[in-house]
């Protein structure tokens, strides 16, 4: 990371890449500092998070139960599988105009897009998790006298957790990606908007500052999720 920053600084300062297009790292960092000091960037980060977090939470609330239902019911699964396959391969970005058309350019359409993009990784992670449950664990549980709901809650769900968590992390990344794109196209707030607007104003340090903040937000989100994950999955081989 430090090396990357140094390389950035050097190639810009030495003019390998025109500093007009790629301002030195130190300049961008200063810009980030000013952005936060003035509250300008804070406001846009909050705007983005205000869309990403509800979208992700909704995807989680819908995706896990739906995945559990689909993964458990064999018949439902074969029926729904093609539908899921098609929908998840329909890029959320391609659907951007559709969302805008149906839900307007307000917060609802942004949250809905994050929700849509995040739903599939969570859904598939959950279904995969269920498929990966070792039948031997079920057998052991049954031999101890467990059945039905108890078997599900005490054995199937904990056994599926690793895959569900992987789905959640992929969902966060996908949601953020789609959100930025949506903000670039039709929004007056959020990091995506800042990136796009600064570029139009030819405020390149401002644009890079927003990109840098975006990377940090993405990184921090992932790190936070990994932290939660290691807490719940401390039994996993590291």
């Amino acid at each position: 990371m430090v090396i990357l920053a140094c390389v950035w600084e050097v190639i810009s300062r030495t003019g390998v890449i025109n500093p007009l297009f790629l301002p030195p790292f130190s300049v961008v960092v200063t810009e980030v500092y000013h952005g936060f000091a003035s509250g300008y960037l804070v406001q846009h980060v909050m705007a983005s998070l205000g869309r990403a977090v509800p979208g992700l939470l909704l995807a989680l609330l819908a995706g896990v139960p739906l995945g559990l239902a689909l993964g458990t019911s064999g018949r439902l699964n074969t029926f729904i599988d093609p539908v899921v396959e098609v929908l998840r391969n329909t890029s959320a970005l391609a659907l951007l105009p559709v969302f805008t058309l149906m839900l307007g350019i307000g917060e609802t359409s942004k949250i809905a897009m994050v929700f849509y993009a995040a739903l599939w990784p969570i859904l598939l992670g959950t279904i995969n998790g269920l498929r990966g449950v070792d039948p031997l664990w079920i057998k052991a549980g049954r031999s101890m006298g467990l059945s039905g709901g108890k078997l599900f809650v005490k054995i199937v769900i904990p056994a599926s957790l690793p895959s569900i968590f992987t789905g959640i992390r992929l969902a966060a990344a996908a949601g953020l990606l789609v959100l930025v794109a949506a903000e670039m196209v039709g929004s007056r707030a959020g990091l995506g908007y800042v990136i796009n607007a600064s570029q139009l104003d030819f405020d390149l340090p401002g644009m890079y500052a927003a990109i840098l903040v975006l990377s940090v937000v993405g990184y921090a989100t992932n790190a936070a999720l990994v932290l939660v994950e290691t807490h719940f999955l401390r039994w996993k081989q590291t």
Binding site: L136, W137, K139, A140, I155, P158, A159, L161, L233, W235, K236
Partner: peptide, 9 residues
């Protein structure tokens, strides 16, 4: 069981 069937979690 032949393969222990311990719960890894």
């Amino acid at each position: 069981f032949q393969n222990y069937a311990l719960f890894p979690w």
